[in-house]
Simulated scan of single mutants.
Amino acid sequence: METLEAAVRACVDVAGDAIEEKDQGGVQLALRYARAIDEAGLEGGQTLTKALYLGPHLLNTLIELGLTPEKKPKAEVTGAPETARVTDELSALRSRHRGRA
């Protein structure tokens, strides 16, 4: 099984020239987060549970480095008409609820 640190290194390698010298601090931070999570995984228990709180920080660092694919909110992918329909329904429900008060 590949370690999280190895996966982060692989992402950096694939990014190639997109990772500039100015990004090296972020790269080192991401590697440190990944290493801490990997090491905690070997210990398990509460240590692992605590280390998993680093996950969102690691993900945010990877996003800042451009090492994750951009994902659009589902409404943008499927189109705005569905979002507008739901918004209209919610507005109608709120109006009806206010009328009861």
Rank of each mutant, 00 (worst) to 15 (best):
T87R: 06
K50C: 07
A84G: 00
E70N: 11
T87C: 00
V86H: 05
T78Y: 15
D23F: 01
G79S: 08
I63V: 14
A15R: 12
A40G: 10
L90K: 01
A7C: 02
K50A: 15
E21T: 07
A80V: 05
A75C: 05
L58P: 01
A40M: 10
G55V: 08
K72S: 13
P81Q: 12
E82D: 10
T49M: 14
R32H: 06
T87D: 02
A101R: 10
T87Q: 07
Q24H: 06
I63W: 06
D38L: 12
S95F: 02
T78L: 13
R9E: 15
E5Y: 05
V86M: 08
L54W: 03
G45F: 10
Y53N: 07
R96W: 08
A6R: 04
A40V: 06
P69N: 13
L29N: 04
D23H: 15
K22M: 01
G41M: 13
T87N: 03
A30I: 08
L54D: 06
R96Q: 14
Q46L: 13
K22A: 02
A84E: 15
C11L: 15
R9K: 15
N60Y: 08
K74C: 00
G99Y: 02
P69Q: 14
G16E: 06
A30E: 05
Q28F: 01
Y33P: 05
A36Y: 02
A84T: 06
V77G: 09
Q28V: 03
K50N: 14
E5C: 11
G26F: 03
D13Y: 04
A15V: 04
T49C: 03
V12C: 11
T87L: 01
A40E: 10
S91M: 00
T78A: 07
E70C: 04
A51L: 11
Q28M: 10
R94E: 05
E89I: 05
L52M: 12
L59H: 03
R85M: 04
L67Q: 12
V77P: 04
G79T: 07
G44P: 14
V77D: 13
R35L: 15
L52H: 01
T87K: 04
